[in-house]
Simulated assay, not measured.
Amino acid sequence: MTTIPCPVGLEELGPDHFAFPRAPRVYEVLLGGTETYQCDRDTALDLYMAAPWVMLAARTNRWFTEVATDTVLRRGARQFLDLGCGLPNRPDLHHLVPRDCPVVYIDRDPGVLAHAKSRLDPGPPYATTVLAGDLLDMEELLRAPEVTGSFDLAQPIAVTVHDVLPWNTDDTAVTDAMAALRAWLPVGSTLSITHLTAELNPRQVSEVVSVYEHHGIGVRPRSRAEIGAFFGGFAHLGDGLAAVSRWSAHGTNVRHFTPYPASASDAPAFAGIAVKTDHSRR
Rank of each mutant, 00 (worst) to 15 (best):
D121C: 13
A77G: 05
S206Q: 10
L200D: 06
T172I: 11
L31D: 14
L30H: 02
L81I: 10
R90F: 13
E11M: 12
A158K: 04
S265Q: 10
W184E: 09
D70R: 05
V174D: 08
C6L: 09
T160L: 11
P7F: 03
P202G: 10
T258N: 11
H236E: 09
I273V: 04
Y105E: 15
G238S: 03
D107W: 01
V29Q: 05
V244Q: 08
L196E: 01
Q38L: 11
F230R: 12
D239T: 14
A269P: 02
A249G: 11
R143P: 01
S192M: 11
V159S: 02
D107V: 05
I273Q: 02
A177L: 00
D121W: 11
G232Y: 01
L142E: 06
E66V: 02
T277M: 00
D100R: 09
P261T: 12
Q155T: 06
W167E: 13
P110W: 08
P88E: 13
D239H: 09
V8W: 14
M138Q: 08
Y37N: 05
P125L: 03
F231G: 01
I217Y: 00
S263E: 13
F234G: 01
A262V: 00
D171E: 15
P88D: 09
P15R: 07
E213Y: 02
I193S: 02
G218D: 08
L96I: 02
W63N: 07
L113G: 01
V67T: 11
L181S: 07
V26S: 07
R220I: 12
V26F: 00
W167G: 14
S263K: 10
V97M: 00
V205W: 01
H250T: 15
D152W: 00
P166K: 00
V275H: 05
C101K: 10
V147M: 13
Q79C: 03
T128E: 05
G33M: 05
E199D: 12
V275Y: 02
D152S: 04
V209H: 01
